[in-house]
């Protein structure tokens, strides 16, 4: 079966990518790519292990990496010199 090999490749790709994170936004993009790779790996594992329940875990992965990126843009990586006032408060 080709699935296990496929997901092994995806994990290796994720590992290499995590190994070097250039700047703040690039690290966040790396985390998002890792989330997508995680979704793919879980889907392939669900096929390989014959467990349909794992599809729910993939759904949660897909939802939450987007949440992390959105929070990063809204809260941490604010617009630099002109300091816009609208995105400040909780």
């Amino acid at each position: 079966m080709v699935f296990a090999l496929v997901l092994l490749f995806a994990v290796v790709a994720g590992l290499v990518r995590i190994l070097k994170g250039p700047t703040a936004a690039d690290r966040m993009l790396a985390a998002q790519l890792f989330g997508t790779c995680g979704v793919a790996i879980i889907l392939l594992l669900a096929k390989g292990l014959d467990a349909v329940v794992l599809l729910d875990v993939a759904l949660v992965f897909a939802l939450l990496t987007a949440l992390a990126t959105t929070t990063f843009v809204r809260r941490t990586w604010y617009a630099g010199p002109e300091e816009e006032g609208s995105d400040g408060e909780f």
């Binding site: 599809l55 759904l59 897909a62 939802l63 959105t70 630099g80 010199p81």
Partner: peptide
Amino acid sequence: FIWILVLIASSASCHLVARRALQKR
């Protein structure tokens, strides 16, 4: 549904990152 969700989520968040990068000049 997973595919649709990933499509919406990734394109929306990538758009946010690109827009904020443009705002940061």
